[in-house]
């Protein structure tokens, strides 16, 4: 049975309307609701389903970030992960932490924990990078099953259906392998209150990037973060005829 490592990120909740800091250094995060990156919830759910199908023996949840990342790990534990590892990275270092660094941390942990399958979300909804899974697979020299919408075990491989631009694609990824979860992989479960209580007793280990021998000095500098230009609505028209006229004026419909 496989040992599964699942990576989760604490991000600003998807429903929050973000605000850019006046000094253009980033977005306001203090006092803003955070939650687990939605794609990572799907990754955790898939790991738990693997365990329920007796494909996985143990699920280890990992998160890199400040102290509050532990809340995200507790959520993963409440959903069914067995133990958690918090890689503490705070302050300035967290501001310039990139998928580049996270992939090296995850690769080291995957080896230390003897994981066979690493599941991540396809992208974090804050930096929208869509890089970590691919980079981790490269560091480990493992196969990668990106943007997965279906995963099945087939011999010593995972049969993965991927969401690609023109439709769907099926590949066979030899184990060990790294998978990134797309939206339609599954419907994540809610953590129940008894499971939230039980999660408090599950083991959570804290380490640092230094402990793992990973250099987290920035490779990319953030010059500035600004608001996008605001688009102004142009009002409404009373009926279909008026709409047709607008389309004609703009040249989309022949007069």
């Amino acid at each position: 049975m496989a040992r599964v490592l699942v990576a989760v990120k604490r991000v600003i909740d998807y429903a929050v309307k973000i605000r850019v800091k006046p000094d253009k250094s980033g977005v306001v995060t203090d006092g803003v609701k955070h939650s687990m990156n939605p794609f990572d919830e799907i990754a955790v759910e898939e790991a738990v389903r693997m365990k329920e199908k007796k494909l996985a023996s143990e699920i280890i949840a990992v998160s890199c970030g400040p102290a509050q990342s532990q809340e995200t790990l507790r959520t993963a534990l409440a959903m069914g992960a067995d133990k958690a590892i918090h890689v503490e990275i705070a302050g300035k270092e967290y501001e310039t932490l990139q998928p580049f660094h996270v992939s090296k941390i995850l690769a080291k942990l995957a080896q230390d924990e003897k994981a066979d399958i690493l599941i991540l979300g396809k992208q974090a909804i804050d930096d929208d990078a869509n890089q970590t899974a691919q980079m981790t697979a490269a560091v480990l020299d493992w196969s990668q099953g990106t943007f997965a919408s279906k995963i099945e075990k087939e011999g010593d491989a995972l049969k993965i259906v991927r969401e690609i631009d023109g439709g769907l694609e099926t590949i066979l990824c030899k184990l060990p392998c790294v998978v990134s979860a797309d939206l339609r992989l599954n419907e994540p479960r809610y953590a129940t209150l008894p499971n939230i209580m039980k999660a408090k007793k599950k083991p959570l280990k804290k380490v640092t990037a230094k402990d793992l021998g990973v250099d987290i000095s920035p490779r990319i500098d953030i010059v500035e973060v600004v608001e996008p230009p605001v688009r102004q609505g142009g009002g409404t028209v009373p009926d279909v005829d008026a709409l047709v006229n607008v389309l004609k004026e703009k040249g989309f419909v022949k007069k």
């Binding site: 973000i18 850019v20 977005v27 909804i125 929208d128 990319i220 608001e227």
Partner: peptide
């Protein structure tokens, strides 16, 4: 590039 679903524009300088 855009971050946060296009709700902020980030200018980045690559050192690599």
């Amino acid at each position: 590039r855009t971050i946060y679903a296009g709700n902020a524009l980030q200018t980045i300088k690559a050192k690599d």
